[in-house]
Structure formats: C-alpha cells, structure tokens
Nucleic acid binder design. Structure first.
Lengths: 254, 254
DNA sequence: CGGGATCTTGAGCAGGTTCAAATGCTGTGG
DNA sequence: CCACAGCATTTGAACCTGCTCAAGATCCCG
C-alpha cells in the first residue's frame, strides 16, 4: 500500500466500499438519493412504506458488473447506497461516451422515464450496493401521493442542469480546465456527504476520465503531471490530494 | 432574392415567420409543444381551459430579443408558436455555450423547474411568437390534474436524452460528423412538422452553429464547402438543400 | 512470481484554431 | 431609392493543442 493511502484513516476520507452483509436499514439509507423522495412522501418518522420497499430491494455489484443495458425496458430506479457507477451511451460503431459518474447517494435511471427504456448503460466501477425501486411501485405511490412526481421533476431538472455544465465543458474548455472542473466536481460531491473534499480516491481509470472529459487518456496523465509540477495536487495512482482548491477553481472557470 | 429562395413555395418548405396579427386559436396551437400537455389533460374536444389560458398569453419577439435571462426567477413555460430560439449558458469570463436551438412547436424553460430560476438564457433567432404558461397556472392545474406532471416528466426526460446525444457529439465526433449530425437533426424536426426535410432555412448564423457544435465558425464554413464539393448539399447563404440524406447519415454516425 | 491491466512519458503528426483579409449581403437613414 | 456602414460569410496561411503510436514502468491479482 502506498504512503498516501496509509496516511488516511478510512472514514472521513474516502467513501466506504459496500459490504455484502451490512444491514441496510432505513436510517442507514439516509444518504440515499431516494431518501429525498421518501422524506417528501412521509412526515419524519411516520409511515415509511416506500422506504421499506426500497430497503428490501438491494443488490450488490462487483467492479465491471452491468446494472442495466441501453434499450432494456425500464425496471427500476436505482439509488447508490455505497460505491460508484459510470453511465455511458454508445455510437453505432461502438465508440463510447461516458455521460456521468455517480457516487454514494445518487440516483440512476430517471432519465429513461419518458422512453420506458434505458437510454444509457450503467456499470459498477467498484463493489457497489444499489437499492432499487421497481418502476411499478414508484408509479403506484405516485398515483397516491402526487408530491413524489414533484420530487422526481426536481431530480430530472437537476440532471439537466448538470448536463448543461458538462456540455459547456466539452464544447468550450481546454484540457486543463476540464480536468480542474472534474476534480472540483468530485470534491464538492464528497464534501456534501462528509468525506474529505481534498483527499479522495478516483474509482475510475484515467481512460474513463479521458473519455468523460472528451480527451485522450495520455492527455489526462500529462495534465495530472503538470498540476503536480505546479504543486496544485499530489497523485499516487488513484489517490488524489488537492493542495490548492482556489487555484484549481480559477483554472476550472477558464 | 436568390434563386434558391425563389424556387421555394413558402409552405411545406420553411416554417412560417410569426405574424403579429395572426389569430392564435386553440386549433392553430395544435403544433405547439404545450398542446401535448393539454391533450393529456382534456379529452379531445372537451374543456380546454388550460389551452385558453395559454392562448391568451402570447408574445412576439424580434431577432435578438431576450426571452429570459439566466438567474431570472422562473415565470413561465414557453412554447414556440412559430419562429426559433437559441438557449445558452455562460462561463464566468463570458464564453458562451449554446445548448440548443428550438423551433416551432418546442418547449422552453422546463429544465429550470427544480431551481425555480432559469439556468440558461434564451434569445430569438428571428421574429418569433411564443405562448407562455405562467408557472403558477401550471402548478394549479398540476394539483388538480396529476397527469400534467406525468407529461412534464416525459418532456424533461426527452430533454435529457437529447442532451446525451449532444454530449456524445461534443465528446467523440469530429467536425464533419458534427455538422452532418446537426443538419440531420434539423431535417428530422422539420419533417415531423410537415416542412421539407431536405430544403430549409437556417435561422442561426455560422458562428452560432460553430458555437453549438464546439468548433470555430471558419471550420463550419469549410465543412459546408467540402460537403458542397462532394455534392452532398447546396447552400446559398442560410438556405440549405440536402441532396443525399443517406450519405449524410453515414457520415453523422461516424 | 508472472501476466495483464493501468499508468506514464516521449516523439511526431494532424485536425482544427487563430489571425487576416476579401467579398457579399442587409437594412437603415437621408 | 440609393449609398454606406456594419455584419456575416468565405478563403488562405501559419500555428498549436491535443491525438496517435510506441515503449517502458508500475501495480494488482491470482
């Protein structure tokens, strides 16, 4: 194990990896994106039927496992309990564009509501526990409780905003700006979930990062090296430590 | 007027330009994106309250007029009655990324539902008539008629799919593939609304096209010229005629 | 310990950008 | 109705960022 890793007490630095035997209680699910739906539905501490349904439908995925394939009929909405997932779309000739990395507490599959088929493919980047809400359960509750739809609208809307930012990145930013933006996005998301915003693990490969950011994997490496030379950060394989968030921000914004 | 333009009977080739005095009846609104919402709400021919509300709230915009600004509180959902609009986001240093061109029958502003503020800016590309549904009207009807939310989910979801395609374009396609994809997208959208899919007017400048596709305006020109040399299409200023949709498709897909 | 995957670095190349300039269109005011 | 200013489009030429190809280093897993 590397020095960087040895320095790090596990909690408060990197998200835990899913443990198959761990009890996934409603309380433990508080981090889950789907929890936002539940809280919307029930008063605090009241009837938690939806949450219970969710908790009963949890699944483990290993690195590289497929959560769903593009074109599959939409079975369920997926909430990442712990771990991480990449989603991507494919061109006819097999080129892949990663459209997002999703970490603990985030939701997958809502973009497919309209089509009733998954539009993208999702694959686990590490050992990942996912809670699933079968779509018919969601539908049933939506009939009964209109505010669920309201909440879903918000989540979809949020996704549209995120995608707009990614489009801006892909269309207008150069390689340095892209990587800086990417690192800051991860940093913020980890911070929101009480993990360290400056020291974390990248669960995706350089090649995945490059694909997502629209650049070659070699370029990703080179920019990491350049940032390191400028003392912006330290990398040790997939461990990253950010030393100067402010300077990173000014780079990210162009 | 150029030869190309003179050849074209107006209807069935290019969308009409908005006429300030034209009556915007419910029937005439059939092309409107918002009509999808209404049909969801009422049986055919029955109570058309929502539609009437919409029809009373129409507005004219001239080329370059702002429909709304990023950060403005969300007032209304906008349905383009005729004309066209570009939406875009801005970086801090003023760089712009156009996130979409929207033509007759399409909806604007739904992406902002969550934030309750517009996330992007919208500007008319030509004389454009827009029907507006004030957000509180939409909310009120949504309370009463849950299927409206259902329909809005579908529209949002559709937008996410479209954005995924644009991300793939920006991240993975070269200049020729981008322009071909762009032209085919317009072609399909015009065809869906019974305009000619092979002969139409580009209401946006080369510079706008370049911005949207993540390339320099000069590159757009050069590729247009190249396509013309290969007899794929003819351009005369902003008039385009596509001669070989199939070949264009095979280019677009990579 | 071995082999495959991942990461890093170098060198040369190319697609696309930038800068510059010519041409053509449009619409605005007199 | 015409002239002119300003904008949009087109084309050329030099340059540069990031890509591709290649090879070596390192890590991870069984």
């Amino acid at each position: 194990m590397t020095d960087v890793v040895r320095m790090m007490p596990n909690r408060l630095t990197t998200p835990r990896v899913a443990d198959k035997n761990e009890v996934c209680s409603p309380v433990a699910c508080r981090d889950c994106g789907i929890y936002g739906l539940c809280r919307e539905v029930n008063g605090p501490g009241s009837d938690l039927r939806l949450l219970e349904t969710i908790v009963r439908n949890r699944k483990m995925f290993k690195r590289g496992d497929l959560l769903y394939r593009a074109g599959d009929p939409l079975r369920a909405i997926h909430a990442i309990r712990c771990g991480s997932v990449k989603t991507y779309v494919l061109t006819n000739d097999g080129r892949m564009q990663i459209t997002g990395f999703h970490v603990t507490g985030e939701l997958l599959g809502l973009g497919a509501i309209a089509a009733s088929h998954y539009a993208s493919e999702a694959r686990a980047l590490e050992s990942t526990m996912v809670c699933e809400v079968p779509i018919e359960v969601l539908e049933a509750y939506s009939e009964e409780i209109p505010s669920i739809r309201q909440q879903m609208l918000k989540i979809l809307s949020r996704e549209i905003l995120d995608n707009q930012e990614l489009m801006l990145l892909l269309g207008k930013k150069n390689a340095e700006e892209r990587l800086a933006t990417f690192l800051l996005s991860l940093s913020r998301r980890f911070e929101k979930r009480s993990y360290s915003p400056t020291k974390f693990n990248l669960s995706m490969s350089r090649s995945d990062i490059g694909n997502y950011l629209g650049m070659a994997e070699e370029t990703v490496c080179r920019i990491f090296t350049r940032f390191q030379d400028e003392s912006l950060l330290t990398t040790e394989r997939r461990q990253v430590q950010l030393h100067d968030l402010d300077r990173l921000k000014s780079i990210a914004l162009g």
